[in-house]
């Protein structure tokens, strides 16, 4: 027997520093809850199937795709979107580098790229290897090849990749 009535759940999540309480249909993804229920529209819906990275947010400090995460499963979570990265009028260094290096064209993929880059740089700081790291036991050096591999989950239909790599390299320095 399948149910027909929606199942609702009350959850509380911290979004870009604010505690938000909301009632969600269990079917709601984190992405839809942010965009449609909370009006936080910086995470974008590209594919809705985990394939493009446009919906990337930081969930408890880690980058994830928000289109395959259920809102109800993230009760109590701390979420930072591209919107919440800046400190007042001071942009986050990764955001500033995207501007300085023209790391965008239409800008649709950009909030996801920026959140992904912030999460990725933390992973590098933690010493996490990647698919292109030669010696898995050695410290990681953030070459352009490493940046490309680690950012491969973020697609850009405008093909701004060259400048995205340059921006991330600059932000990492």
């Amino acid at each position: 027997m399948t149910r027909t009535n929606p199942v609702l759940a009350d959850i509380a999540i911290h979004v870009d520093g604010d505690k938000r309480q909301l009632s969600v249909d269990t079917r709601t993804t984190l992405l839809d809850a942010l965009r449609d229920q909370l009006g936080v529209t910086s995470p974008k819906k590209g594919c809705d199937h985990g394939q493009c990275g446009a919906c990337t947010v930081l969930l408890d400090g880690r980058r994830v795709v928000s289109c395959l995460a259920l809102a109800v499963a993230n009760d109590g979570a701390e979420i930072v979107t591209a919107q919440g990265l800046a400190d007042g009028d001071d942009l986050h260094p990764v955001q500033q580098a995207f501007l300085d290096r023209d790391g965008l064209q239409c800008g649709y993929c950009t909030p996801g790229q920026v959140c992904s880059a912030v999460g990725m740089l933390r992973e590098v700081q933690e010493g996490w290897p990647s698919h292109v790291t030669g010696d898995l036991a050695a410290p990681v050096e953030l070459t352009d090849e490493e940046i490309r591999e680690r950012m491969s989950g973020n697609l850009c239909r405008c093909g701004a990749y060259a400048n995205i790599v340059a921006a991330i390299r600059e932000a990492a320095e």
Binding site: H131, A137, G153
Partner: peptide
């Protein structure tokens, strides 16, 4: 895992994307 079973770390790192592996 990286020390004693590099094949496992390498297989994981070749799969999906950073955002997906975190989930």
């Amino acid at each position: 895992v990286r020390q004693n079973y590099p094949v496992l770390a390498a297989a994981l790192l070749s799969g999906a994307s950073g955002q997906l592996r975190n989930l």
